[in-house]
Design a protein around this nucleic acid. Structure first.
Lengths: 254, 254
DNA sequence: CGTAAACGTTGACGTTGCGTGAAAGTCAAT
DNA sequence: ATTGACTTTCACGCAACGTCAACGTTTACG
């Protein structure tokens, strides 16, 4: 029994276009062509297509499927395991995303108090950096367990006093940093004060503080554009300056 | 203070290319251009960009973000709520996907018994159709609550005897259908027997059987290419024939 | 003041998995 | 001979940019 694209597509529940696509990318080629150039598939191709669609249902990319099927010796289970890891990562990201969307809806909707709304502004400012810290596996690998817990839950449960203090600290860091930046010396008293304030500011949202983690974040402040945003917005180069100050600060306190 | 693409990109933690892209798609245009054609951004643009990036972090598409920002009267909360629904759907799909990948790994890895592996073959055959039934919201809307529970868990807990019976029934459906197809009469005794067998076969994996749901699935067998696969592989037109038989069968038994 | 470095500009292709025409040839039935 | 239902090969479109390429501008330095 031979099938044209239409027949096979119908049997497998896909479109003729998909079959042509699979032909083009060398994933599933017809058994042969008719005199008029029609693609003709045999039962072997039907079987192969079933396998392809099985993997596709599991969400694997066509290129991976091609690799799996090209060589029977190819480690299909490893591919599935890798795929599983990707899916788990996706799930984690999705969970954070949903939580953030929920918070955003609640905040803009006004279901929260005025002070909550105010806190939300602080949350927004941290959102980008936090997300990046959670999503970037390469960053994680690079800096180990710099634990940047989802900070909003912490912020949310702050008392108004705590929140005021937290905000004040953040401003104090900036102010100290501005002064210190004039001197140009990261080891100066002002700069070290800024580093200290920054450490205390962090402690408000971090579950545990450690000089190593603090230093790791300082690196991030420069390496990752995301983190530079906040301080470099004040003055270009200030993020790098803060990093230097923290480097010195953490080495001294260790 | 004016910023070039590089400056603004640095401040916001994105790439210059992204800014050009946003310019191109009319999402964020520079305040004006220098004599040499350089894009120049002011503080208003910095603010706008912050908003854009905030929404982007929440996973909204740029076109939606543009809609939200174009008109202040635009219902941003509704957009977020819609977005939330999408995310929840995604999460559900992801959960099913992960479960299926796990099963596939377990099965191919041999951590399951021989009879389990055999069952897995049956599972694979149902996977595509099941997934489609779960993922296709339009199908759900169309046919209401045709409850096609994730069948594998049911299959998995079948006793060997039950499984044998289930498989036998599936074959019996096909056999009866083949015979009935010759007659060409969906109301014939043979065809009605096939419909009855099919209903019993379904009852093995469905939590509850109802004529309406049975009829709904029969429609699916023809409307959705996915479902046609299994029966039309035997002979083109058999899926439609089965549907007709089921239509008559369910009307009679109701 | 010449020059190199570091920026800026506008194309334009690549990525993923097909959907969707367009233009033109093929096949079976009327 | 004409339809209608198929087939073929391009080729653009989608999302959000990354990544050259080819070429002009600004700035810092000797």
């Amino acid at each position: 029994m031979e099938y044209t694209v239409h027949d096979l597509a119908r049997i497998a529940g896909i479109s003729p276009r998909t079959l042509r696509h699979y032909d083009a990318i060398e994933l599933l080629k017809p058994a042969h062509h008719s005199a008029a150039g029609y693609r003709l598939y045999g039962s072997a191709e039907v079987d192969r297509l079933q396998h392809i669609l099985f993997y596709r249902e599991l969400g694997l990319s066509l290129s991976v499927i091609r690799d799996i099927m090209r060589d029977p010796a190819f480690d299909g289970v490893k591919a599935l395991r890798d795929h599983r890891e990707n899916l788990l990562t996706k799930r984690r990201q999705l969970a954070v995303l949903i939580a953030n969307v929920d918070r955003s809806i609640a905040a803009t909707e006004g279901r929260v108090t005025m002070s909550e709304t105010e806190k939300f502004e602080g949350f927004k400012r941290q959102l980008i950096a936090d997300n990046e810290a959670q999503y970037g596996p390469e960053i994680r690998e690079k800096y180990g367990d710099v634990v940047v817990e989802s900070s909003y839950s912490q912020v949310q449960h702050m008392t108004p006093d705590d929140y005021a203090e937290w905000t004040r600290l953040g401003e104090a860091v900036k102010a100290a940093l501005r002064d210190a930046f004039q001197t140009g010396d990261a080891a100066s008293a002002k700069a070290q004060e800024a580093a200290d304030l920054h450490g205390r500011w962090l402690s408000f949202t971090w579950t545990q503080y450690s000089p190593a983690a603090h230093r790791g974040l300082a690196e991030l402040y420069v390496d990752d554009e995301r983190f530079r945003a906040y301080y470099d917005a004040e003055q270009l180069g200030m993020a790098a300056f803060l990093r230097d100050a923290i480097q010195i600060y953490t080495t001294r306190t260790e």
